[in-house]
Structures are given as structure tokens and as C-alpha cells.
Amino acid sequence: MNLPLAAFYVAAAVLLLAALRVITSRNPVHAALWLVAAFFSAACLWLLLYAEFLAIVLVLVYVGAVMVLFLFVVMMLDISFDKLREGFWRHLPLAGGIGFLMALEMALVLSSREFGAGAVPSPGAPPAGHSNTKELGRLIYTDYVFPFELAAVVLLVAIVAAIALTLRRRKETRYQDPAEQLAATKAGRLKIVKVAPERPAAPAQDAKP
């Protein structure tokens, strides 16, 4: 038993426990936090496979951004926990069937000759000076540049669609235009008026007009 193997077992055990708690915790906020733990352990497993770029990006994107927004939404929901658990037994057969089907499909794929553990030998340690990030960048921007651009366009369409669906301009909302605020000058806002004193003072002999 060497150190990487021990690290693998620890990370895998934490991953399984966290994944189990995601679906068994009663509080959705706790479930989301367990999901964070699961992502983090998955990143540890990827690190053990020498995929350091993917591992760090998994933490950066999923833990650092996606799950923060997820928690943000989950915390603001007003959830009645009793209502959530309603109908558990009624839905169990269907959900269990789907779960069993998924497990069966995964087992079939992983035990097949093309994708089985025997078909993909361990790549072993990369040679010294090998940069995971550089290799990925080279592949994405040369061999796979069109699929990559296509994925980017699909994501852009998704962003535009999401914004178009949720954007509504309410008439009663008042907006500020910083450009307009900055363009304001003294001449446009301030008018200096010469006001005569209310009661004209008695004309003195030496007073200048």
C-alpha cells in the first residue's frame, strides 16, 4: 500500500459518503454543502490521475462559482420540509426503477471490452516538464478548435436566451445613468440669480450704487 493508493481510498470514501448525504440529508442547504464536499473529493481523485488542470478548474468553476449560486438560491427558498418528504413511498417504485436502469447501463458500459478497466491502461506518470495545461490548450485550439468554438456558441446562445427570458423592464423602476450624472455641469444645474435686498436701504451719502 503506497501513499497515492491510500489517498485514493480516502478521497473515494469521502466522495461516496458526501454523495450519499446529498440525497439523504433533510435540509437542502446541508445537501448543497455535501455536494460541495463531493466535488472537492472528485477534484482530489483527478489530481491523483495527474489531471491537475481539470482538478483545479473543477474546484474553481463548480465549487467556487456554480455551487455558490446554487446555495444562494437554495437558502432563499422557503421550503416546507414536511411537504418535501410527502409521497416518498408513492414515487419510490418509479425512482428506484430509473436508478436501477442507470446503474445497469453504467455497469454494461464499464464491463464492455472497449471501455472496461482492462481496455484503458494506466497512462502512468507524465514525463518531466510535461505541462497538463499547455497540452490541453494545444489540443483545444488546434485539433478540436471547431467543436470548441461550437460549444462556445451554444453557451452564448444559452446566456442570451436566459437573459432574454428573465429580463423585463418595469415601468415604475427609476434608473440612473452614470454617464448623464457625470456629464452634469454647473451651468446645467445651477442658476445664480441676483436677488435684491428685501428692503432697499436708505440711500446713504457715501454709498456706492
Partner: peptide, 10 residues
């Protein structure tokens, strides 16, 4: 580490 800046960001 090679990807030091990424670790910092993460």
C-alpha cells in the same frame, strides 16, 4: 506547482 496561479484562483 506548475499551475500555481490556478490554485490561487481556486
Amino acid at each position: 506547482v506548475d499551475a500555481g496561479l490556478l490554485v490561487v484562483l481556486a
